[in-house]
Write a protein that binds this DNA or RNA. Structure first.
Lengths: 152, 152
DNA sequence: CGGTATTGTGGAGAGTGTCAACGATGGAGG
DNA sequence: CCTCCATCGTTGACACTCTCCACAATACCG
């Protein structure tokens, strides 16, 4: 009944497929962002910074992106040096620094979002619109549901 | 019709979800493989080496895994040092070295495959059996379909 | 006021992706 | 046969990523 364990093909492993697909998307997105001077990581930070008017703390950035706070420091440093975001002190907590997008940052984002979208859709050409919607649904439950589950 | 571009939530981005989900699976699998002295990468190589009797060339390993051949060298080195695989010269091409699993390698794989499976299913608890099958289907078309497609 | 937790920051170490070059071998063509 | 080119494994380099530890400044709680 279970001879598959003997010949467990790697191409049937969800983890392997996830890894491959993720790598394809990252590569395609990075290529699309190259001309904008961004990479996937910094682009994500820029997106989140553009998402609010008053800014987002670096701790929240790390939590949403699933990154270590020390990585966020470097990403914000890079974006700040390019003048796309700036660190604004919070008026309620002097520890937190709110990352807000500058007008230049919003402009770059507006210019890049189309290229990224076309790169993503280029990867999704194999799937119908319904399948894409379904995939997004399944992935969001996988990515966010089990994200913060400690082993025990 | 398209106000989503203005508020394009990161949690709706397929690439971001893929990256997060993939990271979760890799982390869980690595944790499961820790007691077996393996990691996801070396485990994949061991799986493929166990898949054939006569062995698999390192070039084929790299192609199947989507890795650079130089990475395969280190992975095979590591497995060979642990005595789980060995490099056997091909009798048809003296350049290629066929990676074959040793009895010890097959034993380790047999012991590890269960732990990896439970780690994977632990990540998939959010999905029904039908959804898991569907996800595998969609991902395989994403991962393998656009894998080797050069941009132009 | 004093102890503890949180936020941002810096640094170390391992793992990974990508690329260039090289020796050894195989294959095709003169 | 000999020469040119492609392929396989290998090494090295470089940048990026992940994970952890430590620290100063600040907030919060008793």
């Amino acid at each position: 009944m279970e001879p598959s364990t003997a010949t467990a093909a790697l191409t049937d492993d969800v983890g392997f497929l996830l890894s491959r697909a993720s790598g394809n998307f990252v590569r395609a997105s990075n290529a699309a962002l190259l001309s904008h001077g961004l990479r996937v990581r910094s682009y994500s930070v820029l997106l989140l910074a553009c998402g609010t008017e008053e800014g987002i703390s670096q701790r929240d950035l790390a939590a949403v992106l699933g990154l270590d706070p020390s990585q966020v420091v470097l990403l914000v440093d890079e974006l700040a040096e390019s003048g796309l975001v700036e660190r604004r002190p919070s008026d309620t907590d002097r520890r937190t620094k709110l990352v807000v997008a500058t007008p230049a940052g919003r402009q770059v984002r507006a210019a890049a979002v189309g290229d990224v979208a076309s790169a993503v859709t280029g990867q999704l050409t194999e799937l119908t619109a319904t399948e894409q919607f379904l995939l997004r649904n399944l992935l969001s439950r996988l990515a966010l549901g089990a994200a913060s589950l400690p082993p025990v």
